[in-house]
């Protein structure tokens, strides 16, 4: 059964249809990419998946749960986690706190546990800290747990965001341009990390990406969006040679030139 399925999802902003009748299916355990030119509606599609936008039409079903009408926090509780295109960490919290915030939907403590400092509270906080440390190491962060997130370099912030997303025990991880602004070396490390997340933790990954090298390297399937519409879908090699995709990226006439040369 598909882990995530959307049917005819439509999201409009005034007169603009940002996502147009989007059908999308994601099998469990895959790494899948959505690509498309700027303004194609990829991030908007992500935001409808995570409940930030309410789609006007269509259905979204994740793991047997319909997602339409749920708030972002409810959707996260259903084991979907995400990162953001422009990193959105909690800048004035420490790295370790950022990651523990990610565990919010899994923590069971009540405010009274916190006030009375019960055994259950202490145990949960201790295991949260241990888990955060483990995640920091997993994504390749050094001893920066007590630093404020805003004081760290860009690459580290990207890693923290991924660790924070992993902290919520996701079944599905949504990555919005996770390698944007990275140098080739960092990008390679990131690709390796995504593979490990899927292979070792069994987490399905859906990513939006601009960097074709990343997309072709990592994706098992690719969906292409243009003007809110899904124009193509398939394996990387199929997408690479799809004329519609080339046209969307390079403009009309590009194919003629390519065939001519």
């Amino acid at each position: 059964m598909a882990l995530l399925e959307t049917k005819k999802v439509v999201k409009r902003f005034g007169g603009l249809t940002a996502v147009d009748r989007m059908d999308f299916t994601l099998e469990e355990g895959r790494i899948v990419s959505i690509i498309g030119p700027n303004g194609a509606g990829k991030t908007t599609f992500f935001n409808t998946l995570t409940g930030i936008y309410k789609p006007e039409e269509g259905e979204i079903v994740f793991d047997g749960h319909p997602l339409i009408g749920l708030r972002p926090d409810q959707i996260t509780s259903l084991h979907i986690a995400r990162t953001f295109q422009n990193i959105r960490l909690f800048g004035n919290m420490t790295v370790i706190e950022n990651i523990i915030v990610g565990m919010y939907p899994r923590q069971r403590q009540s405010a009274f546990d916190a006030l009375l400092r019960t055994r259950a509270f202490k145990d949960e906080e201790k295991s949260a800290q241990d888990k955060a440390i483990k995640l920091m190491k997993y994504v390749g962060l050094g001893n920066v747990g007590n630093e404020l997130a805003r004081n760290l370099p860009y690459g580290a912030q990207r890693r923290i965001e991924i660790a924070r997303a992993l902290a919520s025990d996701p079944k599905l991880l949504l990555l919005d341009e996770p390698t944007a602004g990275m140098n080739p070396h960092e990008t390679d490390e990131a690709i390796a990390l995504f593979r490990r997340i899927r292979d070792e933790l069994g987490i399905t990954i859906l990513l939006i990406e601009h960097d074709m090298r990343v997309v072709m390297n990592i994706s098992e399937r690719i969906s292409v969006m243009d003007y809110g519409v899904k124009i193509a879908e398939g394996k990387p090699e199929e997408i690479r040679s799809n004329p519609q995709v080339i046209e969307a990226y390079l403009g009309r006439g590009a194919i003629a030139e390519m065939t001519a040369s």
């Binding site: 930030i52 708030r71 926090d73 909690f90 004035n92 919290m93 915030v101």
Partner: peptide, 16 residues
């Protein structure tokens, strides 16, 4: 504090 720092990110971390 997460809400103060970034409301959208906080909601996306599961905070109602």
């Amino acid at each position: 504090i997460a809400i103060r720092e970034d409301e959208l990110a906080a909601a996306s971390m599961g905070i109602p």
